[in-house]
């Protein structure tokens, strides 16, 4: 995947020139968060809800198809609130219409559908964030998601997270300690997701505003271990602090061997923490320790 946009001094992926399309805008969450995003200052140009064309939500025009919305308002970024069973169709419609950044907020999208979405996106040079993502926020410029805007503060720390609510938790504690954020991305909590830690790290590396990065991981899968592997040889100069949730979680009952064959003995909090420690990523023991570690890094 090649990333063309977001290289600059204003955070990554989205900024104040982002033209947003809301898919599923007439639904309960879609309309509510359209309101919140608008009041944050996000430039929403159109919405789509099949069969609801011609309506308005928060004075934003609604279309039946992405194609019509594209023709009249040329959005370059889309956010999906559509129900899980329609998410694949909606995402692929946006990709087909040339939209290059698509945030899927929808939870419970079937894995088989996600695989198809990501494959289609990769063939068309589009970036998928999610599914099950809280979205992206570049504080003060653009809020593309469901996060409470007021817990974020503009600054120079990039934040990448597998968890939605933990993103808010840690951003809030950073903001309280006067550590602002360049961009915060929730990459989604599903087993298969579009943009990963590594791709986000590369974007933050090229963003001159970002001085340090926070990674928020959790037990399960091997995203953290794979990221640590990448960092081993990446010559990554910006400091990274990580928090891994799930130290106290009970072990999962396993069935089948395939997971272990694919991932090896990965997945526990201890294993992820060790992997990060080995490549110089600082580990925060509690969410609030992230701010303490960052303060030390930024002050030296």
């Amino acid at each position: 995947m090649k990333f063309q946009r977001g290289v600059g001094n204003t955070g990554i992926l989205i900024d104040d020139s982002t033209r947003v399309l809301v898919q599923g805008i007439t639904g309960f969450q879609g309309s509510l968060h359209t309101k919140f995003m608008l009041s944050y200052g996000t430039k929403i140009v159109a919405g789509v809800s099949p069969g609801k064309g011609g309506q308005k939500v928060q004075s934003i025009p609604v279309f039946n198809t992405v194609k019509e919305a594209q023709k009249k308002h040329s959005p370059n970024t889309s956010i999906l609130f559509v129900p899980a069973r329609f998410a694949a169709k909606a995402a692929c419609e946006a990709i087909a219409c040339g939209i290059k950044t698509i945030v899927i907020v929808t939870e419970h999208v079937p894995i088989r559908d996600t695989i198809q979405i990501i494959y289609y996106a990769s063939k068309n040079g589009a970036i998928i964030v999610g599914p099950n993502s809280p979205g992206i926020i570049t504080p003060k410029s653009c809020k593309l998601g469901i996060m409470p805007g007021h817990v974020f503060k503009s600054g120079n720390v990039g934040l990448i997270s597998r968890s939605g609510t933990l993103t808010y938790e840690i951003a809030y504690s950073l903001s309280q300690k006067k550590i602002g954020q360049s961009t915060c991305i929730g990459i989604g909590g599903d087993p298969i997701i579009g943009i990963s830690f590594i791709e986000c790290l590369n974007l933050f590396r090229d963003d001159s505003k970002t001085k340090a990065i926070v990674l928020i991981g959790e037990i399960g899968g091997n995203l953290e271990e794979v990221t640590a592997d990448f960092l081993k040889n990446a010559n990554f100069s910006k400091p990274i602090v990580a928090y891994i949730a799930g130290r106290a979680a009970p072990a999962e009952k396993r069935m089948g061997h395939a997971g272990a064959i694919i991932r090896g003995q990965t997945g526990t909090a201890e294993h992820k923490i060790r992997a990060f420690n080995n490549v110089g990523v600082q580990i925060a023991e509690k969410p609030s320790d992230v701010a303490i570690l960052l303060r030390k890094i930024l002050d030296t």
Binding site: S163, G164, E218, A245, A248, E285
Partner: peptide
Amino acid sequence: NGAGLVLATLDIVTYYGGKPANFLDLGG
């Protein structure tokens, strides 16, 4: 609400010496 936050809550309760009675995630 949210698996990550609930996991972190379990972690913090444990960190301060408590014992969680359950995991309950409301989801979004």
